[in-house]
Structures are given as structure tokens and as C-alpha cells.
Amino acid sequence: MTLKGNLRDFSFTQLLNLINLANKSGALYVERPGVTTRTIFQNGKLAYFESSDEKLSFLKSLTDHQLITASQHRLLRERLSGMNDHEAGIYLVNAGYTTLDGVLSILEKEYADKFRHLFSWPDGLFRFETGELPPDDRIVVHLNLENLIVEGAREMKEFEELKAEIPSLDMALKFTERPGTDIRNVNLNSTEWRVISYVNPKNTIQQIAATTSLDEIEIRRVVYTLLQAGLVEIIRPDGLPVALSSESLPVKNPKEHKSLIKRLINRIRSI
């Protein structure tokens, strides 16, 4: 029987446990609207990961992890253009930029980081294609699933907590009007700054996430930090129909409204 279903009914953790225990080899496809991911397992270990929404660039990974500098990156980009990851890897090792272990450990980290996002997907269709192999121009790794499962479970717990703090991404953010907080004096990282630059009652959190290419858990993490720091507050986005307008009250005119409240007060006093 093929392994196929929805993460809603069969959790990602369960799925990985199964792949791990059965030492499965093949491709796990997980998709939701707009994104398809493919993870290749070999004998129950993670060998390769790719996602339709973000192409992993081998050179960029090396730069991100400071194995090569930005100027080396620019130089190498030309030299390596046309090479596949295998060839590029061999070139870099031979040219003394890095070691084979260096390349592998960076790829492991990249695959694991991207793959871990799947833990926060509340639903998504999955299917397992037994026997499917990784693309042969890509470098494969051998990542133990146990660690990924433990870290993923931790991340899932964090996600649940963040969801309780920030229940809806359809809300917008605005800066708190608190004299004395000068945002320039606050120590923020680059992702937080990027989000800050879109804080505006017109932008929903969801839109900010899309613009800054952060996923659900990342944007919630940033918003949570900004809330904790007292820099922003959550508000209804501009333009969203106000659920509570004066129309929803039976009396429109303020005088009548006031007398209505006074009648209520008198009544409650007499209970």
C-alpha cells in the first residue's frame, strides 16, 4: 500500500518515525497550496531536500555559513556557473576553499533547517514514492531522523505557544505610542528590522510575512519579540470592515445612547 494522506490526520512526526523504523528509501512529497517539497530518504536517513518555493544555492549556503566571503562568492559565481553541485563541490575542495566535511556539514544544516519547517504545517497532502533516488547532480547527506524528530517536536511546541500569543495573522501591527522608547536604541536583528520596516496599520501580519519571505513560525517569532519588547501592538488592519460599528448598536444618536446606558446602570443597581 502506498503511504499517502494528509498531515491533518497523520502527523509529520508519526510519518518520520515510520520512515525511520522501516528504514525506508524513496521520496516523500508534501504539498500545500503553492508549495511542494520533496525529501529523499535512503535507508531511513534524510539524503536530500528541496522545496518549490526556495531553490537552495550551494554557493549561497557557503557564504551564509561564512565558509567563503561575499567577494569570493562573487568571483566564484562566475567560475562555477554551469557546474552542478557535485562539480562545484569538488572544485571548491580542490581549490582549498573548504573541505569535504565542511561541504557536507553545511548541506546537512541547510537541508535540516528547511526540512524542519514541515513540522509546523497543520495540514498538507503527502505521499511516499518508494525507490525514488536523489537527483544525481546533487550532493547527498545522511542525516539521522531521531534528532530531526526531537528538534521538530520542540519547534512544534514553540509554534503552538506562539499561536496562542498571536492567534491570527490577519491582524496588523502598529508602533506603540510610548514616549521614551526610541526604536533606534533597541537591539534588533536583521530579520526583525525587515519586519519593522513594514509595520503599518494597512499591512496584515500575513502580508508582512509574504513580503519578507518568512514562514508562519518565523513571522510569529519576530512579532512575539517585538510585542514583548513593547515596540508594537496588534490592531485591526485598516480597511477591514469594522465588526463593531455604530450600526450594530440599536441607537445611533449619542444622547439616546447615553440615556440607554444610564437606564442600564439604574437597573443593575437595583438588582
Binding site: 492567534p167 490592531i235 465588526a243 463593531l244
Partner: peptide, 17 residues
Amino acid sequence: FREARSILETFHAYAPT
């Protein structure tokens, strides 16, 4: 308390009453 605060913020965001 944490949940209470989150409920409060949600409600207040929806209903400026």
C-alpha cells in the same frame, strides 16, 4: 494569565469598545 492577555488583545483588536 498568558492566555487571558491573548484573549484580551484579540478581543480588543476586533472590537474597539
